[in-house]
Design a protein around this nucleic acid. Structure first.
Length: 824
RNA sequence: GCAGGGGUUCCAGAGUGGUCAAAUGGGCAGGACUCAAGAUCCUGUGGCGUAGGCCUUCGAGAGUUCGAGCCUCUCUCCCUGCACCA
């Protein structure tokens, strides 16, 4: 225990020294290559840190420390995403102001974070709830409002009754509120939006520029949901009306035998109003929309529909085709689907309602009939009954059909996106006030820049339902910036994702009072070279931050259009098969572990046990192993000698090479294992080589290595020392080969020895080893090792009898020469 | 359904064409040191063999290759994300 108590003293000592001497504070320096390492800034709610948090922060710190030692000018900041609902809820319940609640939480989490010994530049700290930060949210909002990127519109929004607020599409996962899990309902409200749809193509295309995990890119591509196809025009029978459908499979147009309209489509009413179908259809729509949100999760949901009584004309075949309303059609594209026998869902629907079906694709182009089929024919093949396109491959014909449709004015080549504009309005208090006033004369007027920030008022009532901001008269009543007449302020605040969309820019110049940031500073540090965070932000935060960056570039504030060059997504820490979390009650606390083993041991274990991107299982035994490794590192300092040893130099340089490469690609376990292996195989070590080992392990275990470094008489900080560079000329593969030969020999001897002793009870004291002549020296060099590891008096002889050492096995495998062993 | 990632020896997890019976850590077994325990260190940990080897193994099957855990194809199971998206 005394040993570990000492460990804690060591940690505190160096944390203080680093902070006092500001060794991690950085400035722009055009002579040095920069490296911006960033962890997603946390929401300051945790009243403690568990091993999941420790892992996150350690991964970033290791990377930052390595880059710093490699001579980069490393920006590695920390801050807090401090606006959000929990603070507001706490105010409601406990009567503390959100500000006090938040500041207390930040003080708390900072204390724990500092005990990790991370190399943050704390002078750059920021919190999004500070007016000096959110002022610039408002500033950017006004700039975007002027450009039409921020706009207000009446829109159906997701409304959560419990949170009394609207939710972004991204926040209403599968019809449930992401915070409280309550069912989300639809409501029409006037809301503020950012026009992210204008950037859909750039957001999609620029994914190719960045080094992100394929998984995350795929998720973003899905979310943008670009699909290229054709809008095809179906004339309504006995009418001038044209029904427009969107399809990506225009090659099946000749087989279309019915249309389906989404129940939400305004067209439905138009088609059935005043007809005998009206009531039945309306009843059906009521039923569908009511159950819709819950049933969206249900894959097995029965496809249902109802006939509208109307017909359309297939513009290619001129056939009269019925129009249905169906629960499988949604408001995507035009809200109308053209249906045919080459789609499984359409086919089944048609069978259910006895709608005629036609095929136009078969394997060989010979006509086939849906009557002979139980299910849809979805394979590609040769077209038939398709006019001039018959007898051609459907895939090849597709683009030709598209342009043919367009040429004949029965279609239009179209691109559709799933992404919707980003709804930023929240009816909450604890967020950035949207800097807009409503004036009876002038309408919607943005607040003048000189009047920013629009501060959150203190005289609000958190107890009444709805938006607390609406209860502050001081806040609401103001003057119009244009006409100076009476006006009312917008009470919506911005969702938290606005804050997190540019905080990484503010770190570059966090104290600037004149501007959001100095362009020169931002252009020096940005883009973030390595962004680190959880995969749960794959879509929302990471998409919005990319969007914001592109907007700021267009507005002339920055000169790059992707914020994060490289992204690393973390694996989760599990314990007993569950994600480590307070609610599961399976947390292992930072304080518990660091009190017992020291934070360095925890860091070592977390970095050693598996790659940082994988999920890992916490193990109490594992940390013991890490703790022992640190003990061995300390012990190694007793083995210092001045003996020059080429073999050792070779080994150390090879280790530098392996560890450096591994660390660059986040293969921390590989780097650690290489270093620890080198360390463990040593009998004695020169001071220079020991220092190299300390340097290699310093990013992982910064405190103990710093201590040992100073114990060697060094006055500098190891944290600022140069990362060792591999001297290729010192690497000699002969040593490796020699080691391997000797190793194998020891294993062979030991194996035979065991068999001889266990099974036959003979005692052995000498080993005679016969090897081929050109390997004799190598074996002799390793003789001491053999003697030590086998406890036998060993002699090596060279023998020229080639046959004896060149055994060819039956499969003809070429085997290396193996020595012959005699035991006595 | 679509997309992304996986299935390795008791466990976790390395490993992308020979140097692989497969790193490392844990567990387990044996040994050294101790009166003893703990700590520490050493050795072993698929099977067979009184040497150099042989046999079996990396989800299943097939293929490419002189040679496959590693490459190709099919199947299967698991995870993650998206989804009545036409």
């Amino acid at each position: 225990m005394t040993e570990f108590a000492k460990m804690i003293d060591i940690e505190k000592k160096w944390q203080k020294a680093w902070e006092k001497n500001k060794i991690f504070e950085v400035k722009e320096d055009s002579k040095k290559k920069k490296c911006y390492v960033l962890e997603m800034y946390p929401y300051p709610s945790a009243s403690f840190l568990h091993m999941g948090h420790v892992r996150v922060y350690t991964i970033g710190d290791v990377y930052a420390r390595v880059k710093r030692m490699q001579g980069y000018n490393v920006l590695y900041p920390m801050g807090y995403d401090s606006f959000g609902l929990p603070a507001e809820i706490a105010s409601k319940k406990e009567g503390i102001s959100p500000e006090k609640y938040t500041n207390d939480a930040i003080a708390q989490i900072m204390k724990f974070q500092k005990a990790l010994g991370n190399s943050y530049d704390w002078s750059r700290i920021l919190s999004s709830h500070e007016s000096q930060y959110y002022k610039w949210n408002q500033f950017f909002f006004i700039k975007m409002f002027e450009k039409g990127i921020a706009y207000k519109k009446e829109a159906p929004v997701n409304w959560c009754e419990i949170c009394q607020s609207v939710l972004a599409n991204e926040e209403a996962e599968a019809g449930k509120c992401w915070r409280c899990g309550n069912n989300v309902t639809q409501k029409n409200m006037n809301q503020w939006f950012f026009k992210i749809t204008d950037y859909a193509d750039r957001l999609l295309n620029d994914l190719d520029k960045i080094d992100w995990p394929e998984r995350i890119k795929t998720m973003q591509r899905n979310w943008i949901g670009k699909s290229e196809g054709v809008n095809i025009f179906f004339p309504l029978e006995n009418s001038n009306k044209i029904l427009e459908t969107f399809t990506t499979r225009c090659d099946t147009i000749f087989s279309v035998t019915f249309l389906c309209i989404a129940p939400e489509s305004p067209l439905v009413n138009e088609l059935t109003k005043g007809t005998k179908y009206e009531k039945e259809v309306n009843d059906f729509i009521k039923k569908v929309t009511k159950e819709k949100i819950e049933d969206r999760i249900n894959e097995e949901k029965e496809k249902e529909g109802i006939f509208t009584g109307k017909y359309a004309i297939n513009p290619t075949t001129k056939e009269k085709i019925p129009i249905y309303i169906s629960n499988f059609a949604v408001m995507y594209g035009t809200g109308i689907v053209m249906c045919d026998a080459h789609d499984k869902r359409d086919f089944r629907f048609a069978k259910k309602y006895n709608i005629p079906l036609k095929f136009v694709i078969s394997k060989d182009g010979k006509p086939i009939d849906p009557k002979d089929f139980k299910d849809a024919s979805v394979n590609d093949g040769i077209l038939f009954n398709s006019g001039e396109f018959s007898k051609t491959n459907n895939k090849e014909a597709l683009p030709k059909i598209a342009s043919w449709l367009e040429k004949n004015k029965i279609g239009k080549i179209t691109t559709n996106y799933k992404i919707r504009d980003w709804m930023i309005s929240r009816q909450r208090y604890w967020g950035t006030p949207i800097p807009v006033v409503y004036c009876d004369k002038c309408g919607v007027v943005p607040v003048s820049e000189k009047d920013l920030p629009v501060l959150l008022p203190n005289d609000v009532d958190f107890k009444t339902a709805g938006n607390p901001l609406a209860t502050s008269n001081k806040f609401i009543n103001t003057l119009c910036p244009k006409c100076k007449g009476k006006a009312k302020r917008e009470t919506d605040t911005m969702g938290g994702f606005v804050d997190s969309s540019w905080y990484f820019l503010r770190y570059c110049d966090n104290k600037n009072k004149e501007k959001p940031f100095d362009i020169k500073k931002v252009n020096y540090w940005m883009p973030v070279d390595q962004y680190i965070g959880g995969a749960e932000h794959a879509v929302m935060h990471l998409m919005y931050a990319r969007f914001f960056t592109k907007v700021l570039k267009d507005l002339g504030y920055i000169n790059f259009d992707e914020p994060f060059s490289k992204l690393f997504t973390l694996g989760i820490v599990y314990k007993d098969g569950h994600k480590m979390s307070k609610s599961k009650g399976n947390v292992v606390l930072q304080t518990d572990i660091s009190n017992k083993y020291g934070i360095d041991a925890a860091r070592l274990f977390l970095m050693l046990v598996c790659s940082p991107d994988k999920q890992m299982e916490w193990s109490d035994e594992g940390i013991e192993g890490a703790s022992r490794t640190i003990a061995r590192l300390i012990k190694l300092s007793e083995k210092l000698s001045n003996k020059k040893d080429e073999r050792l130099d070779s080994k150390i340089n090879k280790t530098i090479k392996v560890a450096t490469n591994a660390i660059d690609s986040f293969e921390y376990p590989k780097a650690i294992i290489a270093t620890v292996n080198a360390m463990d195989s040593l009998e004695e070590i020169t001071k220079e080589n020991y220092e190299i080992i300390l340097k290699l392990l310093h990013p992982i275990c910064p405190h103990i290595t710093e201590e040992l470094w100073h114990n060697l008489g060094n006055k500098t900080y190891l944290s600022l020392e140069k990362w060792p560079v591999c001297d290729e000329s010192k690497i000699n593969d002969m040593f490796d080969k020699e080691d391997k030969l000797v190793n194998d020999l020891c294993e062979d001897i030991n194996n035979i020895l065991r068999i001889v002793q266990e099974k036959h009870g003979q005692s052995v004291s000498k080993a005679f080893v016969y090897v081929i002549p050109n390997e004799l020296t190598m074996y002799q060099n390793g003789l001491d090792i053999v003697k030590r590891r086998t406890n036998l008096h060993t002699k090596v002889f060279a023998v020229n009898d080639k046959n004896k050492y060149d055994p060819q096995n039956k499969s003809g495998k070429a085997k290396p020469n193996k020595p012959a062993i005699h035991l006595e």
